[in-house]
């Protein structure tokens, strides 16, 4: 842990205090001009503003704006084909945006001096020459980035790939390829990490390792942006989420807040009582929607379980069962993005 990380941590804490839990600041000003020169963002902060990519007949990314904060793992969620990869590639100057811009620490990627020292990216697992050894793959990158050769050995050590250093890439398993990709991203000891579907093809052990690794990096004050189409994985990994579908922003914010807001609206409370009519009337008066359940109980939406209990107590209704049915998060996620996903 060096001074740079410490500074970053302090900045994050101050930042977090100012912001509270509110993440709705993501909507920065739009426009196709360049990034703003005033109001320098925090080091390591990613700002995406009005990003749009128009392919022939398809708007892959549509006026997308969000921010990614340092010191946290941010999940970039969306169904397959939602435009996640295109967005990440536009951030990294690999794909030219039709309009809008993205900055990393206030600078566009193309303007970064020695980009690998600022940003590490893992975009596809199979991006190495099949006939080249793992260590040589990293040495090639070190040479181009002006990093010492020893960084290649250190990075391999970091991801636990040292035993396979001198094996050719074509002999690597998918998990090893992912690790090599991460090693390549870590060569320049970057403050910002961007990973596209890193859990793809990993076995449970590999996923667990990845989760711990990325959380550790965020704890050091680095910015970690991870795309995925698996909400369940993000629940275990991410602090913040950015959800997109059909190239548009659906939700963004801390994972609990976003998932909470997603679930409250859809949550049902199952209640069983011998005085069903009396309770239904009292709940409706409290603003809830009530319908009969399958086994003589009531299904209540619009209020949470404690409210149902309190209303019952006030109405002096005897309760036999009170269950808050948390809806399946994957289901909610699919509902949120439904009709906007699919093949485009």
């Amino acid at each position: 842990m060096n001074l740079r990380h410490l500074t970053a941590k302090l900045t994050i804490e101050t930042f977090a205090t100012q912001m509270g839990n509110d993440m709705s600041v993501g909507q920065v000003q739009h426009g196709s001009g360049g990034p703003p020169t005033a109001a320098a963002p925090a080091p390591g902060e990613i700002v995406v503003s009005g990003l749009t990519k128009q392919y022939r007949g398809v708007r892959a990314v549509d006026d997308l704006s969000f921010t990614v904060r340092p010191g946290r793992v941010t999940g970039f969620l969306g169904p397959n084909g939602a435009g996640k990869t295109t967005t990440l590639r536009m951030m990294l100057n690999l794909v030219a945006p039709t309009s809008g811009w993205a900055t990393i620490g206030g600078t566009r990627y193309v303007d970064l001096d020695q980009p690998l020292r600022h940003v590490g990216a893992v975009l596809e697992a199979s991006s190495a020459h099949k006939g080249r050894t793992g260590i040589n793959h990293l040495r090639v990158i070190c040479a181009a980035a002006g990093l010492p050769k020893s960084r290649a050995d250190e990075a391999l050590e970091l991801v636990g790939l040292t035993p396979a250093a001198k094996r050719k890439f074509k002999g690597y398993s998918l998990g090893m390829k992912q690790r090599l990709g991460i090693a390549a991203a870590m060569l320049g000891d970057p403050r910002v990490l961007i990973l596209d579907e890193p859990a793809n093809g990993l076995d449970p052990e590999g996923i667990r390792w990845m989760r711990g690794f990325l959380k550790g990096l965020a704890a050091q004050g680095r910015t970690v942006l991870v795309s995925s189409h698996l909400l369940s994985e993000m629940q275990l990994l991410a602090d913040d989420v950015v959800i997109i579908a059909a190239g548009r922003l659906i939700r963004q914010g801390p994972v609990d807040t976003v998932l909470g807001s997603m679930t409250t609206a859809a949550a049902e409370v199952k209640v069983r009582t011998p005085q069903a009519e009396q309770l239904a009337a009292a709940l409706q008066a409290a603003g809830a929607a009530v319908r009969p359940g399958p086994d003589g109980g009531l299904l209540v939406t619009g209020v949470d379980a404690p409210t149902v209990g309190r209303v019952a107590l006030q109405a002096q209704v005897e309760l036999h069962e009170l269950v808050a049915e948390r809806p399946d998060l994957e289901g909610v996620f699919l509902e949120l993005t439904a009709g906007k996903a699919g093949i485009r």
Binding site: N93, L94, V110, L112, P115, E124, A128, I141, A144
Partner: peptide
């Protein structure tokens, strides 16, 4: 991808 990430210019 790796090549142009390493050297954006």
């Amino acid at each position: 991808t790796t090549t142009f990430l390493t050297t954006a210019r």
